[in-house]
Amino acid sequence: MTAIIAQLVISGLLLGGLYALVAFGLSLIYGVVRILNFAHGTLLAIGGIAASIIFAVYKLNPVLIAVVLVLVFLVFGYLMHIYLLDPLKKRNPFEATIGTVLVTVGLLLIISDLAAEIAGPTPKNIPLEFHAYIVGEVIIQRAELYILGGITLFTIALHLFLKKTWFGRAIRAVTQSPLGANICGIRSKQIHAQTVAVGCGIVAIAGVLWSLKFPVDPYGGFDLTVRAFTIIILGGIGNLVGALLAGLFLGLAEVFTSFLWASDWAPAVSIVLLLVILVVFPRGLASVRK
């Protein structure tokens, strides 16, 4: 029984860690720029597909692939904000909201369709074979350890980045008061663009790690976006540690639901949890902590 629970916990943490990684970028972008990016999960899928193709063709190390993709996604995110999203801020709030919905949904349609046309719609992954460690009856893949380690390191790095660096402080300043930050010499437009860029960069990393474990296809990103929304609400908007905990919790809950009950109900866990939490704490869990 202990072995079973240990195995389930490992899988749950892994799944949850990946969920959290998807949510990080979204949380950062939403928390700072207040933009609901509907194309977020689709970007992850595109990252995963690109990684899988690069791996198949050049046999590059996944870490190198991640570096390349992060650079590309950073540029993409930056340009996306400067040319598509930022101009909407000049509109009244009502039009700005609708505008961002239309722009990000439009992007979602464009990138998933282009990816399907170029790379084909079949799901893709990075088929790396690593050997496994066996402790008693518990089996851990080395790849999974890499993924878990990657997630942990990445979370810590991101956390330090936001806490310690000038950019991180600027981001937090802009989040709290764009006007105040402006007065202090921070150009909120630049900070916003850089945040969107970083958010997209994180998605690239998530995409590579994701495709090491699960296949992705160009149409499959939207349910990840929904899942990520759930996580950032559970964890508190803009709160990375909260998102990590929420993601891990969701992963564990899904894995245990499918073992103890039935796997066809596992996806319901996150949705029901989200609705219950929102009903009990209408402003998200973060409000409770305050």
Binding site: Q7, S258, F259, L260, A262
Partner: peptide, 20 residues
């Protein structure tokens, strides 16, 4: 026998049942 939803990504639960 186990029925799974198409969005299922982690099968540890099912697999442990199989092993048992």
């Amino acid at each position: 026998e186990e029925i799974f939803a198409p969005t299922t990504r982690d099968f540890t639960g099912i697999i442990l049942k199989i092993r048992a």
